[in-house]
Design a protein around this nucleic acid. Sequence first.
DNA 1: GCGCGTTGTGTGACCTAGTCACTGAAGGCG
DNA 2: CGCCTTCAGTGACTAGGTCACACAACGCGC
Lengths: 236, 236
Amino acid sequence: MKETVAPAAPRPGALGAHAGWTGRFAGLARLSPTLRRKLEDAARLRRFAAGERVFGPGEKPRGMLFLLSGAVRVHQTSPGGREIVLYRVAAGESCVMTAACLFAEQSYHGEGVAETDVVAAEAPRATFEALLADSPEFRDFVFAAYSHRMIELFRVVEDVVFGRMDLRIAERLCQLADEEGVARVTHQDLAAELGTAREVVSRQLAEFQRRGWIEQGRGRVRLADRAALARFAASA
Amino acid sequence: MKETVAPAAPRPGALGAHAGWTGRFAGLARLSPTLRRKLEDAARLRRFAAGERVFGPGEKPRGMLFLLSGAVRVHQTSPGGREIVLYRVAAGESCVMTAACLFAEQSYHGEGVAETDVVAAEAPRATFEALLADSPEFRDFVFAAYSHRMIELFRVVEDVVFGRMDLRIAERLCQLADEEGVARVTHQDLAAELGTAREVVSRQLAEFQRRGWIEQGRGRVRLADRAALARFAASA
DNA sequence: GCGCGTTGTGTGACCTAGTCACTGAAGGCG
DNA sequence: CGCCTTCAGTGACTAGGTCACACAACGCGC
């Protein structure tokens, strides 16, 4: 929809159906046509099915990733099988862990998993650096993204080190619920979000239920009293 | 010492005794004379005594910080008074939290404290951006630093979420000890490094002592068997 | 509908880590 | 020497993580 606005003839190119994608990117939209062309030509389109692994420990990034559509969850996994979600990459964003490992020339320290079907553009480091060199807008875009993620990470550390688990579970539950107040997650999913164990989540949800704040089904939590839960989450 | 090498006449300038400091910076050493001049002129020299606060929550960064000498510890503090060290900035490095908050236009999410007497150069954002625009070496320097810190933060998260406290204490003890195997730290210091409580450290050190790995004095831990401690720290 | 494997949840026992409220020891200093 | 401040030790308790289960809900083939 809204494709009626598009004026220029679609340029057939290596990116096929996604030709012209830079136009939809914050920052990238204002690149010079030359740079834009260069980026679209050099980048390789990569597709991932929902649930598929995008990157993981042991691999090195082959280029900078820009997410064109879908969402990627980036998490860390312990030998014991516990998990914690570090951040999510949405369409229009790039992945900081990829950027960091690309520039530090290290292999990934975490895993990226497609949460939906995903289309991403992978730009070689040289192209990425050329863009950084030539486009102030692109620099802004990259630095702002990098900075916000870094701050997000500071927050994750703070939560994990100082935060109370009951409050964190309540908060995440509120975030994950849709407009009807239903979150389609298993206890295990919630545990993986927060870096805790499934049993801890189960016990806490039982307590929330006892207080009448939620109702539970298999793989499903309904917020019976979202306001109370949110109030509790903020009561730190 | 080794000042015999310095060929050019020292240029008197706003930075006084630190004139010409860009020459000692990785990456910055290769700036064009014009840029260098610009940076040295625009940056404001700031001095801090050991123990003094360099920045903290509530403040916004007034510019990018480059540490010319000394060391700064960056940590987060909980309302309850617990602390965790995120990273340290050494001479020749810049501070990522400052960079992140500068670009995201947010106030600091942690606190920076001078661990020794410190001299730092504070470059206004405009100057910083000009350097990024004009110098590939400076971009490399900044991106590499940013990337390494980010990876360090991933590691901190991993340690805190999945790591065992006894191993973390042993590891940090090994890091903090000098060549003679003596660490001049209080139990509280160790706790603040790792984001735990003083009592936890006390109990663990008592156990290490019982095993003959360390000897303790007031504000002082001697590694009686550094190898054993290191082996234990790595036995995860 | 029935059987059966898979996945999600409930629970108790146990251990580690963090909190609270103390005690007393070690050092600095007048 | 006495006094104050800082550091360290300890016990009781709570929160959170681990282990080993039991069992319920669903998916699916027949």
